[in-house]
Structures are given as C-alpha cells and as structure tokens.
C-alpha cells in the first residue's frame, strides 16, 4: 500500500547539502500491517513520518500510495489524500483550542470536497461514545486531561474512515495508564478494523505493539 523508493531528504544551505535527514530509504508497507518506526531522537523518524504522511516531500526518490506516485500530484490532490487516506495522531494532540471537542472531530469532514457516505456529526458522536467521552462533546480541549485529548485526537483521525493511521509518539505526553488505554485503542483499530497503522516511537514497550519494527538511525534503516 505504501512504498518508498530511494528516498532522500537533505537540507541545503547556499546550494550545498549540509545535512541528510534521510538517506536512501526503501520501505514497503502492506495494507493491514501494524508497523512501528523506531529510533532515537534526531534519527530522522519524524521526517520519515512526515514524508509518509504527505506533509513533506523527499529531496529525491519516489513515494507511492496504492501504486500512485505522489510527487506529480498537485497540492490540492495531496491535501485530499491527507484528508481521506491518512489519519494523524500527534504527540502534542494538536487539537484546535477554540473549537469544542465535537467541532474538532468534525473538522476534517469540513475540508472534504466529495459527498460523504456518513453524517459527520453522528459519526463523531458515535466515536465519542465508543471512547467514553460523550459528555465532553461541548467542552473545549483545555478542559480535558492529556489522555482524553489524545482520545479526541484519535476520534478526529478516524472521522474520515482513513486507510492509514499515522501515530507520532501518541503516548509521549500522557501518563502511563492513559497511555495503555490509548495503545489499546490503536491495537483495536488494527486488529478489529484492519486499518493500517504506522507508529513512530523511541519507546521499545510501545513499539512491541507492532508486528514489524523498522529501526532507523542517522537517517538510515538498520
């Protein structure tokens, strides 16, 4: 489903390459896989995640989603893929503070150009029920605990029925008990709903949830 071919990411200063964040990366991830990307900080794992998540473009090499090369795509088309194909879960939750829990979850649906097969509000309420946050629907994110915020963020990632969940250190900013709850949710998404999950972490215990671990160091797969 996802294929990276000879992907490099370098940063230049005055036309001279000063730093390689990623060097010659080749990865293939199949649909339904639960895969973790592990590495110490500064290893390039976040850059890799941004490239897989279509938030960033490689300096060279090719990225395929469902055998479609994405470097030729227009910005609007890439936005559409982020909207419909991928659901993001961030370490910092990245909820929008001035929107309520419910509005935050619905937000991706507002950016969708095609007609949806579901009613976004109903779907959001259903997700909130499932995550035990129904009574928080009209609260603002700053009134929620870290664990609750992360569950809202997961609900937001799921609203568009994505085929891929990209989770970047999802337990990094929450206590261990909430962390376990969050990981349980992510496990369920892969096991029960067959959503492809890519988990970026530096924590071995978290990485163990995945069936496959891709280790990265100094921008290279080891």
């Amino acid at each position: 489903m996802i294929k990276l071919q000879n992907v490099n990411k370098s940063y230049r200063l005055d036309n001279e390459i000063i730093f390689y964040a990623l060097k010659n990366i080749n990865i293939r991830i199949e649909a339904g896989e639960f895969c973790s990307i592990m590495g110490p900080s500064g290893s390039g794992k976040s850059t890799l995640m941004h490239i897989i998540g279509l938030l960033d473009k490689p300096s060279s090499g090719k990225v395929f989603l469902d055998n479609q090369e994405i470097s030729n795509l227009e910005d609007d088309e890439i936005s559409r893929l982020r909207n419909e194909f991928t659901g993001f879960v961030f370490q910092q939750f990245n909820l929008i503070p001035k929107l309520t829990v419910l509005e935050n979850i619905i937000l991706p649906a507002f950016y969708c150009r095609k007609s949806l097969s579901f009613e976004p509000k109903e779907k959001a309420l259903e997700l909130l029920r499932r995550f035990g946050l129904e009574e928080k629907k009209n609260s603002y994110p700053n009134k929620l605990s870290g664990g609750q915020q992360q569950r809202v963020a997961i609900a937001r990632a799921l609203i568009m029925n994505p085929r891929l969940i990209l989770a970047d250190e999802p337990t990094g900013n929450i206590d261990s008990r909430s962390g376990r709850e969050v990981m349980k949710l992510i496990d369920d998404l892969n096991h029960k709903e067959k959503i492809t999950v890519i988990l970026v972490t530096h924590d071995l215990d978290i990485a163990k949830h995945a069936k496959r671990t891709i280790k990265i160091k100094d921008g290279q797969i080891i």
Binding site: R80, N94, L107, Y111, C112, M160
Partner: peptide, 13 residues
C-alpha cells in the same frame, strides 16, 4: 501552528 494542523487534516490552500 493552527494552519499547519488544518493542513495536516486535509485543508487545501
């Protein structure tokens, strides 16, 4: 940052 989040969620320019 908010603009970045929105773009990640699929907002077009």
């Amino acid at each position: 940052k908010e603009v970045g989040i929105r773009r990640a969620l699929g907002a077009q320019k």
